[in-house]
Simulated scan of single mutants.
Amino acid sequence: MSLMDCHNKGPGILAVIWSLTGVTTIFVAIRIYIRFFMIRNAGTDDYIMLGSLFLTLSNAGMTTANVRMGYGKHQKYLEESTVERIILINTISFAVGIASFTVPKFAVTSLLTRILIPSRAQRIWLWSLLGITAAVSLTCIFVLFNQCDPPRAAWERRLAREGQAKCHDMWILIKIAILNAVLSAFVDFYLAIYPSTVLMKLHMPLGKRLALCAALGMGTVAAAMAIVKSTEFPDMASQDDFTYDTAELVMWTIVESNVIILASCIPTLQPILDLTLRGAPFRTRGPQGKETNYNSAFHFTGVKTNRRSDRSATHLESQESILDEHQKNSHPLGAIIRTDDVSVEYNSRSTQNLPDRHTTWHIG
Rank of each mutant, 00 (worst) to 15 (best):
L333R: 00
R123A: 05
I39G: 01
I227C: 07
F242P: 02
W18S: 02
I174F: 00
G334N: 02
D240Y: 03
R85W: 14
A99Y: 04
S264L: 08
M218P: 12
V103S: 02
T56C: 12
F36G: 04
G22E: 04
A313S: 13
E291G: 02
G12M: 08
L50Y: 01
V23W: 04
D241R: 03
T220R: 03
L78P: 05
A15L: 10
S19C: 14
G286M: 02
A65G: 07
D356V: 14
N306E: 14
F106W: 12
T91M: 08
P151I: 05
R68S: 14
L210V: 15
H203P: 12
Q147C: 04
K175I: 13
R283C: 08
Q270L: 07
T44S: 00
N295V: 14
E79T: 11
F94E: 07
G97Y: 00
Q122C: 08
N66I: 14
A280L: 06
D169W: 04
L144T: 15
F101V: 09
E248W: 09
I141R: 00
I272K: 01
T292S: 01
E248C: 05
M251Y: 00
A263Q: 04
A211S: 13
G51P: 08
H203G: 09
W155K: 00
C213S: 14
M38L: 07
A135L: 15
K208F: 09
A297G: 08
L116V: 11
S257P: 06
R152P: 05
P150V: 10
I363G: 00
T24W: 01
C148Y: 05
A135P: 10
I141E: 10
T314I: 14
F242M: 06
S264D: 10
L78E: 03
T351V: 15
I176W: 06
D356E: 10
C167V: 12
W125E: 04
M1A: 12
Q239L: 07
T305G: 10
T139N: 09
L126W: 01
F242N: 04
K105L: 07
G279F: 06
I193T: 08
T82D: 09
F36V: 11
K73A: 12
T64N: 02
K175G: 07
K76A: 13
A247E: 04
I178V: 13
R152K: 08
I141M: 12
D45H: 00
I193L: 11
G207I: 09
H362W: 03
E345C: 09
G43Y: 00
G334D: 06
R85T: 15
I363H: 03
M38F: 03
I92F: 11
I48P: 01
F106M: 11
V96P: 02
R31E: 06
R120D: 08
D310C: 12
L277W: 04
L3Y: 13
E256S: 03
H203N: 12
V143D: 08
E84T: 11
S2R: 05
P271G: 06
K166V: 15
F242I: 11
S100D: 02
C167N: 06
A237E: 01
L112E: 06
L138G: 13
T25E: 00
T253F: 00
A335L: 05
S100C: 08
L202T: 13
G22M: 02
M1I: 13
A154I: 09
F298E: 00
N180Q: 09
S296A: 14
P271Q: 03
